[in-house]
């Protein structure tokens, strides 16, 4: 065993720089979040050291109305975004899966929406959602869908919807690219067989494409949930969590606790809750894969 380790030592040298980096700057922070959630760490005792206070931070956070609102908004936001991104992404992928001139150009140019820094997208959509001069309100009033211009970001009832629309726009091309790649890896002959059997387009979609794409769609879904869950930048730029917590989400709440209130312990609680939820999603995913393979 020892001799084997020694033989392999030069090989491990390749891994060590990255492993050290990951341990120091990625695993340590995650563990630290959990530890600090049981401490009363604030800006005041940052240098002198904090005490362990048991579950106090958890009790404080869970009792605030804000936590419930943030959790609810995060769930609404994530599920709405994923639903529309995947459905619209799928439709666009199906469209681009046809043969026509310059289709690779169209496939990649759409990605501009995804590549643009979120700060820019956030301020750009703030302008598009503007009450008096925004393009969206102009379209809606001219097409007579609404009578009065909507104060999208300024009122509690519509702010979350506006942020969701923004993020759907950002996420569509990403989903489209992944779904398109999955579609292009499907075998062609099953489609010909379906055609011979006289299946129409909808039947082919339901009975051929969807079952074949299922494994890849599941990966895309899980990736999507994880990426969408991270929402922070566009909230900060577009609404700052308001009006009156209408767009408060967990990552933003954690940020406010740490960098506005400087209550690091309570921010650790939010980070730990997020970690817990993500682990549950990952386990659920692994369980689904196992079940799939067992069948």
């Amino acid at each position: 065993m020892y001799g084997q380790m020694r033989n392999k030592f030069p090989q491990y040298l390749f891994l060590i720089p990255a492993a050290l980096f990951v341990a120091m700057f990625m695993i340590y922070p995650i563990v630290y979040n959990v530890i600090v959630s049981f401490q009363d760490l604030t800006l005041m005792n940052l240098k002198s050291g904090a005490k362990f206070i048991g579950w106090d931070n958890y009790i404080n956070i869970l009792q605030t109305e804000r936590f419930g609102i943030a959790l609810k908004n995060t769930i609404i936001y994530t599920s709405a975004c994923i639903f529309f991104q995947v459905v619209i992404g799928y439709l666009m992928a199906a469209f681009l899966n046809q043969e026509f001139p310059f289709r690779n150009f169209f496939r990649s140019i759409m990605l501009l929406a995804w590549m643009t820094p979120l700060v820019i997208t956030g301020s750009l959509f703030k302008w598009l959602f503007d009450v008096d001069y925004g393009v969206f309100n102009y379209l809606l009033t001219t097409l007579q869908i609404v009578d009065e211009p909507i104060n999208w970001l300024g009122q509690q009832s519509t702010a979350l919807t506006a942020v969701i629309i923004t993020n759907v726009w950002i996420g569509i091309p990403f989903n489209m690219i992944l779904i398109l790649a999955a579609m292009q890896s499907l075998p062609k002959d099953v489609y010909e067989a379906a055609k011979v059997d006289g299946a129409n387009k909808f039947q082919t979609f339901l009975n051929v494409t969807l079952p074949l794409l299922r494994p890849q769609l599941m990966i895309i879904l899980v990736l999507g949930i994880i990426y969408t869950f991270k929402v922070f930048d566009i909230i900060l730029i577009m609404t700052g969590g308001g009006p009156v917590n209408a767009t408060q989400v967990l990552p933003f709440y954690g940020y406010e606790l740490a960098f506005v209130n400087f209550n690091f312990g309570e921010s650790g609680v939010i980070a730990t809750v997020i970690l817990f939820i993500l682990i549950c999603i990952a386990l659920l995913y692994l369980w689904m894969i196992k079940k799939e393979e067992a069948q």
Binding site: L15, V22, M26, I30, F229, K230, Y255, A258, L275, A282
Partner: peptide, 28 residues
């Protein structure tokens, strides 16, 4: 390598954590 697959798994998991949650520990 013995730790190769575990390391790969750790990378996939750490990637899931929102950046803003990494920011506070890194700041401290």
């Amino acid at each position: 390598l013995m730790w190769g697959n575990i390391f790969l798994l750790i990378l996939l998991v750490t990637q899931m954590i929102p950046g803003i949650m990494m920011a506070m520990p890194l700041y401290i």
